[in-house]
Design a binder for these strands. Sequence first.
DNA 1: CTGATGACCAAACTATGATATTGGTCACAC
DNA 2: GTGTGACCAATATCATAGTTTGGTCATCAG
Lengths: 203, 203
Amino acid sequence: MNEGSDSRQPSAPDRRLAAAAESQFRRFGYKRTTIDDITAEAGTGKGSLYLHFESKQAIYMAVVEASLERFVEAASRLVDGSEPVPTRLRSLVELTIEHYGHDELLCASLFGRSGLVDGEVARMAADFQRTRIRDLIRELIVIGQRERSVRAHVNADAAAAVLFEIGWAVVRTALEGDSQIPLEQALTTLNEIVGLGLLPRHD
Amino acid sequence: MNEGSDSRQPSAPDRRLAAAAESQFRRFGYKRTTIDDITAEAGTGKGSLYLHFESKQAIYMAVVEASLERFVEAASRLVDGSEPVPTRLRSLVELTIEHYGHDELLCASLFGRSGLVDGEVARMAADFQRTRIRDLIRELIVIGQRERSVRAHVNADAAAAVLFEIGWAVVRTALEGDSQIPLEQALTTLNEIVGLGLLPRHD
DNA sequence: CTGATGACCAAACTATGATATTGGTCACAC
DNA sequence: GTGTGACCAATATCATAGTTTGGTCATCAG
């Protein structure tokens, strides 16, 4: 069995299908990609797709999940860092802007403003991403509380939800280029407010 | 001249047109309200509308501006209060939720999720509302800094922009009923983070 | 003469029917 | 037993005819 440089290499069909799907979804978006597009690129018959994935939606979600894991790996390294929690939060926001600014597929499904994907599958993909990112924030708060660098009085779930909304607003504004103030200033101000609060401190 | 209880009372045509427009826009939304609807209710000819307002958009914006002033008056009373700034902020968020939950016309133009209004005029109306609310927040911060109850180090413009995004996210989530956590808890957590920050305090 | 009116019209929108496309299925071939 | 692609119901798209509407301005009334 020669498994050399043949471009139609005999890897598992589900792998080939997933890779073809990612390629087609990134080029045409969910709405315009057909099952025939995917299976032609994967070199399988149309019906074979349903041996491995339940539906067009299911293979799209698989692509979204794999794409998001790339982001989550980088983000987890930030969460595990040693800087103050607000600084790590700021870095997480920056990484999100950077990553989503380069990943049209994730961006389209999370913000839903393009013609590339809409309807139920877009909602599912967005919920998945939101939940995953919110979990990262929660983890960061719990770590901070364990390190005693975050006030113990803060409820981790509620704070994660609130901070997610905050970070998401900044990310959305940055990606839409629709900001009232420069991004750097917004991040700095956010860092201050989230870290130190508005009230005077007597540290 | 008997100006008694006649329903077609001889008030100024621009007043009658504005009132008729508000009535029709609230009932049918911008998209479905026609100029004939408005002028029929106002008791004028169709062309008379253009003696007082430049376009359908212009009369809609006049209605939005008048409606928003009702909200701003109540909100200004909060801003001028004497409680801690984060508490006033929280009250402002609560008032916004309350007011927008009852004003479908403002809500539709600000959030743009209904079929009542869309396109350029919705953007204009939303920008107007955002700017006005952001100004209220800025005023609150400046007052707090003057009272020395807000840290002087915070840039008022940047903080107003960031806090607006924060409050807006909470308002939107509350009105969409799509929250991960109870609203009361979100408001409490928001109050804590915005007021005290995440970092330990040695007050 | 001045201001109000509503008929008019170009542009936009809507409805409808015909046609094309596509996700999913399964009988058939290997 | 497994993979395939023809098939089909459901959905989407397109073309066309008809309707509606924002804005204009000639006309009329006071």
